[in-house]
Design a protein around this nucleic acid. Structure first.
Length: 261
DNA sequence: AAGGAGGTCAACCGCTGGATG
DNA sequence: CCATCCAGCGGTTGACCTCCT
């Protein structure tokens, strides 16, 4: 496919040929974005080196791929990460570790790069502030057993008072601004063999801590159904959708929890 | 107003594994 | 089976921005 694309376009470019061309680095210009979008629309995703070559972009295939996936691709969601997403990232990190692309699969529209940046700039920073290793059992248990359920209760309480969880999409191509609604139903194990189901909406989930550690648990409903990715035409909300888990109050609460341990 | 510190995030780097010839 | 190419991944960097002094 790769080679057929090249031959179709009469290009002799190969990966190695980049060495002989001065490749541009740094920020992308609007013109480059436009060229890349046009060529991806014609040839589809993939074959990035070929696209870079035939489009006349002095960029590596890697650079084109990254620019497309993290910025130009339709439905890329940008901006504040919602509380739900923050919780999901926490939960999924404890399940998958630093497999960012895997985590990103569960957050439609979010890129692995964005999630990775969030984790490193927010979560790691706060763990540092708590004088706690983010991978320590103490931190993980505190998060999993107390912190995540507590936050979900707060979200549920807020939701039941008329709040909604919405997140703005930003699409640099079309400038349309649809919203995605994320259901509040989300269950996680809170203690050995005890299921914790916030919404009680027909999806429960139970597991032992051991099985969670080993990653052998069944996927919680929010992950299985994936209906939260459904785009709905709802009014943008100014609620806590863009709020941060790591408020001073929450950090203080966590410090007490970790101190108690 | 200036500049230093810290935070954010787009982009790059190096590596790995799968595909292909 | 081997060599090469390339996509994809996680870690890292650096430009830019904001806030504070």
């Amino acid at each position: 496919m790769m080679r057929s694309l090249l031959s179709d376009c009469g290009s002799s470019a190969t990966y190695g040929s980049e060495e002989h061309m001065v490749m541009k680095k740094g920020s992308w210009t609007e013109e480059e974005d436009s060229v890349l979008i046009n060529y991806v629309n014609v040839y589809g995703e993939g074959h990035w080196n070929s696209i870079a070559s035939i489009a006349g972009l002095k960029r590596t295939g890697k650079s084109c791929r990254l620019r497309w996936l993290n910025y130009l691709r339709p439905n890329v969601r940008r901006g504040n990460i919602t509380l739900h997403e923050q919780l999901l990232i926490l939960y999924l990190y404890f399940r998958w570790g630093n497999r960012w692309s895997k985590i990103a699969e569960e957050l439609p529209g979010r890129t692995d790069n964005e999630i990775k940046n969030y984790w490193r700039t927010r979560v790691l920073k706060q763990a540092k502030q708590l004088k706690c290793d983010v991978n320590s059992k103490q931190f993980r248990d505190t998060m999993r057993l107390v912190w995540i359920p507590r936050l979900m209760e707060q979200i549920q309480a807020s939701s039941s008072h008329g709040h909604s969880q919405t997140t703005m999409f930003s699409n640099t191509q079309t400038h349309t601004e649809p919203c995605v609604t994320i259901p509040t139903m989300f269950s996680v194990p809170t203690s050995d063999n005890i299921s914790y189901n916030l919404m009680g909406g027909g999806c429960s989930f139970s597991s032992s801590l051991d099985s969670l550690e080993k990653g052998s648990i069944s996927t919680p409903c929010i992950l299985q159904q994936k209906n939260y990715s459904k785009v709905e035409e709802v009014e943008p909300s100014t609620d806590f959708g863009g709020a941060d888990l790591w408020t001073d109050e929450n950090i203080c609460f966590l410090q007490q929890l970790l101190a108690d341990d």
